[in-house]
Amino acid sequence: MLAKVYVTLKPGVLDPQGKAVRSSLASLGFLGVEDVRLGKYVELRLAETDPGRARAEVERMCERLLANTVIESYRVEVS
């Protein structure tokens, strides 16, 4: 199975990288960008074939390592 994990900063957590990207976009003339939030994308190829078990396993990985839940949240897609 393929698991896709999106790790993003929780709302309200300062994202200086996002701010820098937004200001670069503005300097390129893309003036309509109100906010930019950067995150991480992780792709995992799993031996597991049951979607439910795969998702549960990946969620445990997120809790333990892939995300720091003090400041980040995550979303898992399994296919």
Partner: peptide, 16 residues
């Protein structure tokens, strides 16, 4: 902090 032995996180410097 990552190990949970101290509270909080050290995030990227605001200045980058």
């Amino acid at each position: 902090c990552e190990a949970g032995m101290l509270p909080g996180v050290l995030a990227r410097n605001a200045s980058l």
